[in-house]
Amino acid sequence: MADYFAGIDIGSTMTKVVILGDEIIATVIGPTGVEQRRLANKVMEEALSRAGIPFEDITYIVSTGYGRINVPFADKQVTEISCHAKGVSRLVPAARTVIDIGGQDSKAIRIDANGRTKDFVMNDKCAAGSGRFVEIIADCLGVPLQEMGTVSLKSKNPASISSICTIWAQQEVTAGQAKGRPIPDLVAGVHRSLADRVVRMARRIPLEKEIVLTGGGAKNAGLVAAVSHMLQTALLVPEEPLITGALGAASLGRNMVEKAIKKGISLETKKRVLDVVQIL
């Protein structure tokens, strides 16, 4: 019987689960919402169902992300920096820099050939440096979030949008609309503004190729193009850029178990039960 490992990444916007055997055998992505503990159970149940294995077959579970302490069945919590590094390295072994644009924060991580973190920098103070910026503007313009990327790629003359503050940027977009600026130009301007902020933060660490973009921001082709333009280099984007944290968590879980076996020590694990969690 193969050993299975699970990683669960509770981010501010999305919760991701990866079940890992020799390869990835199941992934689930769902919105986090307010009831993180209940959702953790739900997405894990869904992942087990997709993998077609019972819960007790999971050898080790690692949780990560902002809500990592809210996973009642996790055997270990690891920071998202370490998990993203490991996950990206597994998918793109040549990666040396990870830029992750999430819903609530963005980060840049320098990694080595083994997927170990060498340095990192995070922005968590301001929505203008995270995916939330694009969400707010999408809402303001009435453009579905998932279409923002393709809309912006139609732009011939991106608008100049302040990168200082989401609220001011929103006002600038509204003013731009009133002046009749085409929506693709406004959206492209918003992407450039976010990219500028992210790249300025990322440059605090030495950026070494290959550079991999992950997180919800990596699903936005317009934003990827803007970041690539600012960095003057091509970026690699994994097929599913949202799962790198959860994948890294599962991989680190495997490493921990292998190390423990090598050293002849046993690792404590939680009872494999998906309890009903009472949320007030």
Binding site: T79, I81, S82, T117, D119, D124
Partner: peptide
């Protein structure tokens, strides 16, 4: 959260 990540980094270095 940043401190945790930094400790992880020190460990991996």
């Amino acid at each position: 959260n940043k401190i945790d990540a930094f400790i992880d980094t020190l460990e991996s270095v």
